[in-house]
Design a protein around this nucleic acid. Sequence first.
DNA 1: CTATAAGATTCATTTAAAATGCATCTTATG
DNA 2: CATAAGATGCATTTTAAATGAATCTTATAG
Lengths: 151, 151
Amino acid sequence: MQLTQFTDLSLRLLIYLARLPEPGLATISEIADYHQISRNHLVKVANSLANQGFIMSTRGKGGGLQLARPAYAIGLGEVVRRTEQNMNLVECFDIPSNQCRLIRNCFLKATLYEAQRAFMSVLDKYTLADAANLGVNAELLSLPTATPPLT
Amino acid sequence: MQLTQFTDLSLRLLIYLARLPEPGLATISEIADYHQISRNHLVKVANSLANQGFIMSTRGKGGGLQLARPAYAIGLGEVVRRTEQNMNLVECFDIPSNQCRLIRNCFLKATLYEAQRAFMSVLDKYTLADAANLGVNAELLSLPTATPPLT
DNA sequence: CTATAAGATTCATTTAAAATGCATCTTATG
DNA sequence: CATAAGATGCATTTTAAATGAATCTTATAG
């Protein structure tokens, strides 16, 4: 049960931008250097985020990346849903390719769906402003429920 | 966001056993045939389940696999937690190997932990008897919340 | 109008994890 | 002792993800 590094980097890139002072512009190279990660990979991450409408990119000298909306208007659930490639927890989630013979009278699928919705519901409660710790909704994040337990 | 096929097969194997009439014994080959999957892979799945105490295996002629406990006493959350290899949603979940520089003042981790706990909490509500649709707690499963939505 | 700094796009390669296959060992029954 | 079962270890294949490299497009400065 993992998210791809692609999704991880998408979130990190957004957090990086969210924390910049006005006008909130940074280049891909700058962010790749900061995180010491492959610039090539980050280029694709930036592209995907731009295509999904989370960031705006400007080419040419003086260009770079900026949030397309204020951080408090970017939901974390939305980002994950649009970035994570494969949300099929198990084979039977994808009807066209399913091979499992239990499909008709098995409640595992319904249960896993419910669990996945619970997962996404939590992410939907928070925004990029929360993740970047910008103060908006920050009081929510100091509640016990937001403290990392050992699973 | 996927579970491994290994986990998927673990659950399917348990459901298969849960549905057998007394004494609930089946061979690995029988289950592999039924699901038309690699017997080799299923051998390892069966092994893992036996090591975790979910099933009992008996060697030799007339041997096979059986549930080690009644289906209603096997929690789905427990199975997933013990079967899924890697529960680190993102890099920073694993402190020793973490490289992310945001770690100190980023609430993404706390949020993802909360989401993961919400996910597991749902699975913890249900047992193998529910998944196998054996009637126990079945009324719970017909509630709207258990109906598969589109994420 | 050219040099340069940026992102966009495409294709190829590498890596790592998962899945699969094969051979051999152990155990139990008739 | 033959056979049917699971157990174990090693090798191979497959797949998705990650990474790398080359080229294209766009914008700005001088």
